[in-house]
Design a binder for these strands. Structure first.
Length: 437
RNA sequence: GGAAGUGUGGCCGAGCGGUUGAAGGCACCGGUCUUGAAAACCGGCGAUGGGGCAACCCAUUCGUGAGUUCGAAUCUCACCACUUCCGCCA
């Protein structure tokens, strides 16, 4: 949720930056009018409430003193008040509702040093690691490689046809060693984060309620990207939602809680499937495993103190890079420009892995500092050094997207005769196997 | 699915329709004592929002939402969550 104090205290400057960075128009005069209305209504309402409270207390006192005449007189005096109070309360709630709707639908404010830009073309490269291998044969893409690998009498190791029969487009079936490689990747990532990076491994629900989706910002604005699960309750059917990322489950751990300051930063990780309807991306990446309705991801979430959150973003990004390094996959780190950042983020690094068949780098991880945006929505706070309650900062990043990592391994480690070499780091997870063929 | 019960501040826990934001305890902060610490003792201590330059004042808040009432933590209804027992079950 957008910080209302930025609008109250620094409206012009905030509006200008939001326009420049997000192309988002804050209606300055509408906000000021709404604030003025809220203010006068609130003062008026509270004044009426006070009158009612004082008179009611007096009634109690009179009755305690057995002064019935006085009590009757006071009762006559209050009689008209409750109705007025009620009317004012309703009007105030309506105005506050409008203010909230505004704050809940606004994207977060990017950090000031964010590179300006329209889309991914304007992202700024920070560094590269590894050198793309040169092949002395024509490289195949992961689809061709995987479909040519045999799982014996079960058919191809990578099977989109069967997946389409079962579920439709944008799903995949993996079999045999490829399925095992997929599992191995998730195990390897999780183990690395837990054993070397100090994360707590978590198992989390894949279906969450609307409050959780609201907390991390998927709702109310991005409803159409979510898969809904109608669940019967005593008063009808209510939607729950399949998680589009375990960021939702992990970050909402701290919803409505006072987090112990001494416990910060919290480093949480989980391996889960992610479900995305991919509404509006018809025609993009239709071939292969790059863009699916269901994919696995190992997620990293931090709950941090405000003063350390940017440093934690660097740390988290480094941990994601570590996975790629261990797998020997060339990548580059991009600082996202204003136009390419997600709505909740103030600062984001994307990791892009080299895909030889596409002859380009493709996103495999995204690490963001959301600052207090989600924490304000969630009511996640801690006691700061001054003893005041303050929203925590939340960060999330992929560490990594498992499906896309599998794609990168198939393509970068392919051999001329169609086999795929298994990176050293994964062999312990593959029973010592060094080659898929 | 059936039955019963519970939901109060950072945590535990008391609470009669009336000056109850709510006893008590823990934790925390300040102080006394001590070479230092602990213990003991004294004092302070919820949150959110609003008004005010400020001292301060006001409103809201006892799972959530409606309702009864001049007045609700307390009464009524609905919902949510949790606990226990029974049934079913990977």
């Amino acid at each position: 949720m957008f910080d209302i104090n930025l609008l109250r205290n620094d409206l012009q400057v905030t509006a200008e930056w939001m326009k420049t960075a997000r192309g988002y128009d804050i209606d300055v005069s509408a906000f000021q009018a709404l604030e003025a209305e809220r203010k006068s209504l609130q003062i008026q309402t509270q004044d009426l409430q006070q009158q009612r409270n004082l008179l009611s207390k007096a009634v109690g006192q009179a009755k305690a003193q057995k002064d019935d005449a006085k009590a009757q007189q006071l009762l006559a005096e209050v009689a008209a008040l409750p109705e007025k109070v009620k009317a004012n309360e309703l009007a105030l709630a309506a105005v506050q509702e409008r203010v909230n709707a505004m704050l809940y639908t606004m994207p977060n404010i990017p950090q000031r040093d964010t590179p300006l830009g329209k889309d991914s073309d304007d992202n700024v490269e920070q560094r590269r690691w590894g050198t793309p291998k040169s092949f002395d044969f024509t490289v195949k893409d992961h689809v061709a490689i995987g479909e040519a690998l045999s799982a014996g009498n079960a058919g191809a190791q990578l099977d989109f046809e069967t997946a389409a029969k079962l579920s439709g487009a944008r799903f995949v079936v993996m079999k045999g060693q490829l399925a095992r490689l997929h599992r191995a990747l998730a195990q390897f990532m999780l183990d690395t984060h837990v054993n070397e990076h100090g994360f707590t491994e978590c198992y989390v629900p894949y279906i969450v309620n609307a409050d959780s989706m609201m907390g991390t910002g998927q709702l109310p604005k991005f409803d159409e990207d979510l898969f809904k699960v109608p669940m019967a309750t005593d008063d009808g059917v209510k939607n729950r939602y399949l998680i589009p990322t375990s960021e939702v489950s992990l970050t909402n751990f701290v919803r409505d809680t006072m987090v112990d300051a001494a416990a910060l930063p919290l480093r949480l990780t989980a391996h889960t499937p992610c479900f995305r309807s991919e509404a509006g991306s018809a025609g993009r990446d239709t071939r292969g495993m790059i863009r699916q309705h269901q994919f696995d991801k190992v997620e990293m979430v931090y709950i941090a103190k405000p003063e350390e959150s940017n440093a934690m973003l660097e740390e988290m990004t480094g941990f994601a890079e570590k996975i790629l390094q261990k797998l020997g996959l060339p990548y580059r780190v991009m600082r996202l420009c204003t136009g390419d950042m997600g709505a909740g983020a103030t600062k984001t690094y994307d990791l892009e892995v080299w895909l030889p068949a596409q002859n380009t780098y493709r996103e495999i991880s995204s690490c963001s500092n959301c600052e207090a945006f989600q924490a304000r929505r969630m009511g996640a706070r801690f006691k700061n050094a001054q003893g005041k309650n303050e929203p925590v900062h939340t960060l999330n990043g992929s560490g990594l997207a498992v499906g896309r990592t599998l794609v990168a391994i198939l393509e970068n480690y392919q051999n001329e005769e169609g086999s795929v070499t298994i990176p050293e780091a994964l062999r312990p997870y593959m029973g010592g196997l060094s080659l898929i063929k």
